[in-house]
Structure formats: C-alpha cells, structure tokens
Design a protein around this nucleic acid. Structure first.
Lengths: 144, 144
DNA sequence: ATTTGATAGTTACCTAAGCTAACTATTAGC
DNA sequence: GCTAATAGTTAGCTTAGGTAACTATCAAAT
C-alpha cells in the first residue's frame, strides 16, 4: 500500500479516537468541540471577530454565529466595542476565562497522555510536518 | 505554549482542512466521508460484519447500520452469506469495486499532493508515531 | 433439551455541527 | 452620493454521531 494511504488512514483513525476522548473531557464541563476551539482561539489571541474565527477554523459564517450564540448564552463571552459597527468582536468573559484554565488542565492531561513516550523533538518535528501539509492545503484554496 | 498544545492545535486544523478537501473530491462521485471509510476498509479487508466496522471506525452500531444501508441502496455492497445468521457480512459489489478504484485515484492525488515535499521516510516515521498515539488512546478504553 | 445470557443488527429519536441561499446593516471606493 | 464589498444573521437542509429499547440468533450451563 502507498505510504500516503497508510499515513492518512492512520491520521483519520487517530483523529477520530482523539475527538472521542476530547469530547468525553469537554462534556464533563458542558462544552463541545466547536465551542472549545473558539475558546482556545480566544485564549491565544485575546479577541476575535466572527469572520476571523471562520477563516481560522475554515467553516462558514453561520456555523460560527451559532456556536458564538451558544457561548454567549452560557455567559462565557463578552463583546468588545470597536469602530466598525458591522463587525462583532468578542473576547472571553471572566467566567469564560476561569472555565478555560480549568478545562485546559484536563485537556492538557489528555493530550500529554497521548503523547507520552514521544520526545518533545519528535513532537516538534511532527508539528512542523503538519504545518507544511496544512500549507499545501491552504494554497490550493487560493481563490478566496 | 506547551509542545503538546501546539501539536494538537496543528493536528486538528490539519484534519479539518483535509476533511474539507476530501469531501470535495468525494462529492464529485456522490460519496461522503463515512461511506468512503467503509469502502476503504472493504478494499483492504475483502469483507466485514457491521460490528467489525463499528469497532474499527470507533462508532456505534446504529451509525454503521445507516451508512451501510445507504451504500446498499446505491448498489455498492453485496451480502456474503455465512453460517451465523445473526451477523450481516458485506463486501463491495462489482460496481462498488469499480467506483472504488476510480475514487481511489482522485484521493491518492489529493493525499500525495498534501504530502509533497515530505520524504517517504518522514511519512513512515510520522505514521509510526501516530500509531503509537492511537495505541495510547485505545488502551484507555480497555473495559471493552 | 431448555433456559439463560450474550451478541448482531435494527428502529426511533435526539443532537452537534457542517452547508447554502437569501437577507440586513454597515463601510469603503470611486 | 451611489455602488461594491463586507460582517453578521436567519431559515432550513444534511451528515453523522449518540442512547435506549427492541428482535433474532447463537452459545453455554444446567
């Protein structure tokens, strides 16, 4: 079998298993994957507009709107006023930030468990390769 | 940021981009990801029962039932009679197999494009690492 | 041989999370 | 100022996952 086939077969299986376990962790806190990915972004980037999130996560705007609405309803987000009144800029609220650090611990535990036995060098090398692959995919979408 | 966090952030982003492009390819043939993963399994394993597929893909039985039903309706699967009359063993029909080789070409093209510039050795090493990670996840689920 | 328990699959139903199409409200460019 | 483009929303569809409860068949123990 082609090494590319083996690669992606393993890649997909691993992703599905990972998503499964991640969901188990998140559900303990009443969260879902899509919500978590937004909180994660806001933890690393302070604030974001919906379009920014849509681009980053590579989903359409209505998908983001819905997830944001849910996070707002729970009270994990707050608005950041800006001068462009079309856009809606959000950041984590205090309770959102509090929850994030808590869940982050549990997710770190899961992730580090999965990576146990794999050296930091190998992790970084693999991350680098994945970035390269991601870049190949992005450049296919050029006509944005 | 922890290297595990960077790893999984990249991992998830890459997966989502990949799934997106894979879907684009599959849709040209009227297929979806879940259907494709079953055809892929049957291409590598000749035949399978629903439970076998559920275990491999790590989803529940009703999910498999539905996807199999769809593939049957399109005519890509046929039954393999066996002595245990509880189980339903399926394989690809002729038209399923024909479609598979066709789609396989397109998917190979996509996958090889994504992996371009990454040596076969690196691909294999990364596959090995992913297998190791997958194994960590599986062993967490021991009580099966 | 019969009963009991496990296993394979199905049915019905719920939910998350993606999508498109069509819309409003702003802003930017000419 | 008018027109284009951009940000976001609403409505509605679909895939694909999940549980709970069920039937049919088989295996094992008594």
């Amino acid at each position: 079998m082609k090494s590319s086939q083996e690669f992606f077969q393993q890649f997909v299986l691993l992703y599905r298993s990972f998503e499964h376990h991640l969901n188990d962790v998140l559900n303990d806190y009443g969260l879902y994957r899509a919500q978590w990915s937004i909180l994660h972004y806001l933890a690393k980037n302070e604030s974001a507009t919906l379009v920014e999130l849509a681009h980053y996560l590579r989903v359409e705007k209505p998908t983001i709107t819905r997830t944001i609405t849910r996070l707002e309803n729970i009270g994990y987000l707050s608005h950041v006023p800006g001068k462009d009144r079309r856009e809606k800029r959000v950041e984590m609220s205090e309770s959102g930030a509090t929850l994030y650090v808590e869940v982050r611990k549990a997710v770190d535990l899961l992730e580090e468990g999965i990576l146990s036995g794999i050296s930091v060098e190998q992790q970084q090398e693999t991350t680098r390769i994945m970035k390269q692959m991601h870049h190949h995919l992005i450049s296919k979408e050029q006509p944005l």
